[in-house]
């Protein structure tokens, strides 16, 4: 099953390694060490021409620090605002974390494959997200909410380490109101937590799925995705209906640097969204 790779505009074709300046329009703290940065290209023509699909990513650049591949987490229906939910983990993201509204960030993209939203039309959707893995799935949720009647049941199975680590806290109510069934779990509860405790794959035990009519989209730590896949397969959801979003070291995002290889796949080109049937022989192989 091939995944549609949206074509890029001419701008990126000329020198694909050149960054384009964008202004930070907003910084929304989501959880400890995690914020959503809203960016807008300085050049109005670039801003007007930019389009992206759910699941794609940008390379964000800070002069002197370097570049990081970050998924778009915002609404593809409003492509002038590029939302990136970023955890301050490495040298570049920590430097990003020190920036303020009005500062500049280099952007190039969007790159990579998208979640198969067209195939999902008329079907049920199970979105299984762990930690910051919910960020690349947020554009799916926002797209579904725009055209809710185009899809069957849409379930979000979402887990975080602790209640304070849950992202998009204020929005989840709106997602529920919009017709998305949200199941949340945490690994470690505090005394105020009244919900499920445990890992994301366990949330499958709280839902019923029609295997022939369901697509699974999952993003999170690889070990979590592995067990999400087990649970999905155990419910006879075909391999071809399971999609995962993978992460690898990435230096160029255009297939030149070789860093993001995963067997025959370049995560930057055929990924990050991959069909499980395609990568099954390699997925979960130790140190691969």
């Amino acid at each position: 099953m091939s995944i549609a790779i949206p074509t890029l505009d001419r701008r990126s074709m000329l020198d694909p390694m050149l960054p384009h300046a964008a202004v930070i329009q907003g910084i929304n703290p989501e959880a400890n060490g995690i914020s959503t940065f809203s960016l807008e290209f300085v050049d109005p023509a670039e801003a007007a021409a930019y389009r992206f699909s759910p699941g794609q990513f940008n390379m964000l650049y800070l002069p002197g620090f370097g570049e990081v591949a970050i998924s778009l987490s915002s609404d593809p229906g409003e492509p002038q605002v590029l939302g990136h939910t970023i955890r301050c983990a490495g040298s570049v993201t920590r430097a990003l974390g020190r920036l303020r509204v009005g500062d500049l960030v280099g952007v190039r993209g969007p790159y990579g494959s998208a979640w198969p939203l067209e195939r999902a039309q008329g079907k049920n959707l199970v979105l299984a997200a762990g930690g910051i893995g919910v960020a690349p799935l947020r554009p799916v949720i926002l797209s579904v909410l725009r055209q809710r009647d185009q899809y069957g049941r849409v379930l979000l199975l979402y887990g975080a380490r602790m209640p304070a680590d849950l992202l998009y806290h204020e929005e989840i109510g709106r997602w529920r109101q919009g017709g998305i069934e949200v199941h949340i779990t945490v690994d470690l509860a505090d005394e105020n937590w009244k919900g499920q405790v445990g890992v994301v794959p366990q949330l499958f035990y709280r839902i019923r799925v029609d295997p022939k009519q369901t697509l699974v989209m999952t993003c999170g730590p690889e070990i979590m995705m592995r067990f999400v896949i087990y649970e999905a397969l155990a419910r006879r959801i075909p391999k071809e209906s399971i999609f995962i979003s993978m992460e690898r070291n990435m230096k160029c995002a255009v297939g030149f640097c070789g860093h993001c290889q995963f067997g025959p796949t370049f995560i930057c080109k055929q990924g990050p969204v991959l069909n499980f049937a395609v990568i099954e022989p390699f997925f979960g192989k130790e140190d691969f």
Binding site: G66, C252, F256, C257, G258, H259
Partner: peptide, 14 residues
């Protein structure tokens, strides 16, 4: 073999 890395440098005033 074509794999490459990138290095970033800045002046002291950034």
């Amino acid at each position: 073999c074509f794999c490459v890395n990138v290095e970033d440098h800045s002046n002291l005033k950034a």
